[in-house]
């Protein structure tokens, strides 16, 4: 394995005709951490990653591996492993041959193709043509391609998209393990919930612009806490809470109390002698502030 290096994005911009896909992005992705690259669909995540990998030429700015552009890396495949969308396969070629083709191009021993297949759990399907692969198997083969050169940097575009719960769990553990070995791991996703359990850092972009960057916990800026409460006599409960000064709105499943702690709401009900059938604290701070950052697009 080669050492993980920091990824520097410096004033990176890309225009496709009249459309500004990426605007003046500046941030750094550090080794030894899993960095979630988040934003709604169409925010410019894939374009940014493709510029980093030399597949798309930036209109302005640079994206480098510790100062070196992808095409100038002495050995790109052993420095960086990338898995972009799950469709870059010739359907008539077997998985092993798919990897072998690119191992030859990068002058990596063919043994690496077998090892990579084993690592992603595809060893026994290696001789099967990729045309017959399921989406989950293609995702794994994409990951195997990224691992071919045992690189110090992993750049993965929506790696859990289309995976079953078991596959998502496996991928999360895998990313964690890679970062713990000192590798730089950059993972894009349009859903925070998909990666929230496995990322250390987040970079959020929306409409091609940087919206937020920092540790995952820094995303939880809003202090809007809500309590969902219900009882057999909903009217009395609502009166008691309103009198206690809470803002209450009625949902089908009960009453939503804004800016409250569950213990306080429980106390108000007890003091007013109102029976409760449900009482729960809603903690959606992360997701809420993510949606607030990315705006209406985040609901997609």
């Amino acid at each position: 394995m080669t050492a993980g290096v920091p990824l520097h994005f410096n004033a990176l911009s890309k225009r496709f005709g009249d459309v500004a896909a990426v605007k003046d992005l500046t941030f750094t992705v550090e080794p030894g951490r899993v960095t979630g690259f988040l934003g709604p669909n169409g925010a410019g995540k894939t374009t940014t990653m493709r510029m980093l990998l030399g597949l798309v030429t930036p209109t302005a700015g640079t994206a480098t591996f510790d100062g070196i552009a992808y095409r100038d890396l002495p050995s790109p495949m052993t420095t960086v492993g990338a898995a972009l969308e799950a469709a870059s396969f010739h359907p008539g070629r077997s998985a092993f041959n798919h990897l072998a083709v690119y191992a030859r191009a990068a002058a990596i021993p063919l043994e690496a193709a077998r090892v990579a297949l084993e690592r992603v759990g595809l060893a026994e399907y290696g001789s099967r043509r990729v045309g017959g692969y399921s989406l989950g198997m293609r995702q794994r083969l994409g990951l195997a391609f990224a691992l071919l050169g045992d690189p110090g940097v992993l750049v993965l575009d929506e790696p859990v998209n289309g995976l079953d719960p078991e596959g998502i769990k496996w991928t999360r553990g895998f990313l964690r393990h890679m970062a713990d070995e000192g590798r730089t791991v950059m993972v894009s996703s349009h859903l925070l919930s998909e990666v929230a359990q496995s990322v250390d850092e987040v970079v959020v972009i929306t409409h091609g612009e940087l919206a937020h960057t920092g540790p995952l916990s820094s995303l939880d800026m809003t202090e809007t806490r809500e309590v969902l409460v219900d009882g057999p006599d909903r009217g009395s409960l609502q009166n008691a809470l309103t009198e206690a000064g809470y803002l209450v709105s009625e949902l089908r499943s009960g009453l939503l109390v804004s800016g409250a702690e569950a213990s306080d709401v429980g106390h108000v009900a007890f003091a007013a002698g109102v029976e409760l059938s449900a009482l729960s604290q809603k903690r959606s701070g992360l997701e809420d502030s993510f949606l607030a950052l990315v705006g209406e697009g985040g609901s997609l």
Binding site: L53, G54, L55, P76, M77, A82, L84, E85, A87, S88, F89, H90, P91, H98, Y102, A103, A105, A106, F145
Partner: peptide, 10 residues
């Protein structure tokens, strides 16, 4: 088959 992506990565 969009294999230009892995080709140019390698």
């Amino acid at each position: 088959y969009q294999t230009l992506t892995p080709t140019f990565l390698a």
